[in-house]
Design a protein around this nucleic acid. Structure first.
Length: 572
RNA sequence: CGGAGCGUAGCUCAGCCUGGCUAGAGCACUUGCUUUGGGAGCAAGACGUCGCAGGUUCGAAUCCUGUCGCUCCGACCA
């Protein structure tokens, strides 16, 4: 391809609405353009990279035995009603109506569609296992799209769905996808690692996210360098010690704490109650029912864990007025020792188990209670792990200190069980003729997000640095004279023909621009190899091969093609 | 949806506070000349409903109200 015959609108400056580096580079290198918030056009170069990432995914999915299909983006409302997700997923669903006023959803994912297909087409254990995948445009009405392709309203996702005869067989399918994901991200040149993850609204028992470390990532990952434990912070646990028991201090005793409404204030003189000897009492409304959450004063509630445990579709912290209504006091003086209505559920964090001589609110503004023993004085409905792990806590597996870092989630694998197959009738007859629900798994890769993650991880001050495997073109030929018939241009055209004939993807920068402009643009776009052909080097009978990441190499014209081909070999 | 900020040329921005002549700069674009190994120079030119709609005023890019869009923080995130 010749530069002047395609569209590569590079920008010297980044548009002001781009915040993070990879988003700026996507725009500056002419890969994408924004149509509206969270909605982008892929320009020729961006599309080429996208196709390469897709192809890697396709090859690895095929290798793992998955079969490609293409499902509709337009999905009838009814199947979503059947699984109950018309309600639970309504926050992200784009809804459209046809001329007959029938409601349709634009596909944010396709469990309902594929399970409906399986219900029709799979009837025997002989047809299992099966794993169907597609690469297609997905729509999610993200509340706040951001960071370019990272979180968009319309994006490209690879989604796969496995159907198995049993839990054990489903686990094997899961492992296959897990391994395939590793290969996919490795081939994309990404540092990546799987972490234990929360299953969220989609449900299921077991899930891992594939993370790419990046400071701009939206996820926090807890990991242990010693043993390899890694989990999303929403899910992570640690080996923090429980709360030490003390000599019983007698019955709960109320004392005045005027104006004290924070853990921190109570820890100061004249009270001097250490944060870890306090019980923090939070009031939430889960689908309008009040729930108390007890957590140690020095811990933070993990709302994802809380939500997973309550199983409610919606929850929110109670307002101060609602706290008064429920417990008779305002936040800052709340506790679970007295005046707790019998119908209110009380969840306590495991770390409080057996704790005594604790201090907590008295449910009377301006008063606290001391000498509180969890076992004796608090009616706990359920004990759960509800706290948020902090850096430096001992690893739950090996005891070494945990670290926390930010990362981009590029893939997510779930073991789904029979949640969808039961609701949509995807079942099979086993050897004994008994009807059983298929055991499912689902597996997603954010293709467009992966593309941006590659940029986020591969760049320097001059621009993008593409791995060979996904570069829009492997080689950029940069003749410094472009007049037809000029020896420089003639050599460039010869190299272009010879490299193309060898299957190399070459972009010929035939723009009549000054050398500096061409070099800057080649660096910005990030071609793995740039070949400069100018009068000066040609006078010595040479061309210059410049790997994007590496030193310039002058080679004889006759050896140019073989020199370039050598650079294209994978290292090692 | 809560909080904050921003909408002026294709892009980056100035002008706004304190209303006033023909609305500006750099880059990009067109033409010509010069230049030609890391974002050239000179000259000429084209490009604007100052987001939109109301209002105040003799007069609004500037002040007020509403509205739409964009960005950031939060909530959300299969």
């Amino acid at each position: 391809m010749k530069w002047t015959e395609t569209l590569i609108p590079t920008l010297r400056e980044a548009p002001s609405d781009a915040e993070i580096l990879s988003h700026k580079l996507l725009l500056r290198a002419g890969l994408i353009r924004k149509l509206a918030g969270g909605v982008y056009t892929f320009l020729p170069l961006g599309l080429r990279v996208l196709r390469k990432v897709e192809q890697i995914i396709r090859e690895e999915m095929d290798r793992a035995g998955a079969i490609e299909v293409l499902m509709p983006a337009l999905q009838p409302r009814e199947i979503w009603e059947q699984t109950g997700r018309a309600e639970t997923a309504k926050g992200v669903l784009f809804k459209v109506r046809d001329g007959a006023d029938r409601e349709w959803f634009l596909s944010p994912t396709a469990e309902e569609v594929i399970t409906t297909l399986a219900a029709h087409e799979i009837s025997s254990y002989r047809q299992l296992p099966r794993n169907f995948y597609q690469i297609s445009t997905k729509f999610r009405d993200e509340i706040r799209p951001r960071f370019g392709l990272m979180r968009a309203k319309e994006f490209i996702m690879k989604d796969a769905y496995s159907f198995d005869v049993s839990d054990a067989a489903a686990m094997a399918s899961y492992q296959k996808m897990y391994a395939a994901y590793h290969r996919i991200f490795d081939r994309c040149g990404l540092q990546n690692f799987p972490v234990e993850a929360d299953s969220g609204v989609i449900g299921g028992s077991h899930s891992h996210e594939f993370m790419v470390p990046a400071d701009t990532g939206e996820n926090e990952v807890v990991f242990c360098e010693a043993c390899g434990y890694a989990a999303n912070r929403e899910k992570a646990t640690s080996g923090v010690p429980g709360t030490a028991a003390r000599e019983p201090g007698g019955a709960p005793e109320q004392f005045a704490t005027p104006g004290v409404v924070t853990i921190e204030a109570l820890s100061r003189e004249p009270y001097g109650v250490a944060a870890h000897r306090q019980i923090k009492t939070l009031v939430y409304l889960v689908e309008d029912s009040p729930v108390l959450v007890l957590i140690r004063g020095d811990d933070q509630l993990n709302e994802t864990k809380f939500s997973a445990r309550t199983g409610g579709l919606t929850f929110r912290p109670a307002t101060p007025e609602e706290c008064v209504e429920i417990l008779g006091a305002r936040p800052g003086s709340l506790g679970a020792v007295r005046r707790v209505p019998a119908e209110v559920r009380v969840l306590a964090d495991e770390r409080l188990r057996g704790a005594n001589d604790m201090t907590t609110g008295a449910n009377e503004d301006g008063f606290h209670l001391r000498h509180v023993a969890m076992d004796r004085d608090v009616r706990v409905s359920d004990w759960f792990d509800l706290r948020t792990v902090a850096a430096g806590e001992p690893c739950v597996k090996c005891g070494q200190p945990l670290n926390i870092r930010r990362a981009i989630e590029v893939g997510h694998v779930f073991k789904l069980g029979t949640k969808y197959s039961e609701k949509l009738g995807a079942s099979y007859l086993d050897e004994s003729g008994a009807r059983r629900p298929c055991v499912m798994g689902c597996y997603g890769i954010g293709v467009t997000r992966t593309l941006q993650a590659i940029i986020e991880q591969g760049n320097d001050k001059d621009g993008i640095i593409w791995p060979l495997s996904v570069a829009p073109y492997q080689v950029c030929l940069t003749p410094l004279q472009v007049a037809a018939g000029h020896p420089v241009m003639e050599l460039a055209e010869t190299l272009y023909r010879e490299l193309t004939a060898r299957g190399v993807e070459v972009l010929l920068d035939d723009r009549d621009e000054r050398p500096g402009v061409k070099f800057k643009d080649a660096d910005l776009v990030g071609f793995p190899i740039r070949v400069a052909i100018g009068e000066k080097s040609l006078a010595r009978g040479q061309v210059e091969i410049k790997p994007r990441r590496g030193a310039l190499l002058a080679v004889d014209c006759a050896a140019a093609v073989s020199g370039i081909m050598a650079q294209l070999q994978p290292p090692g």
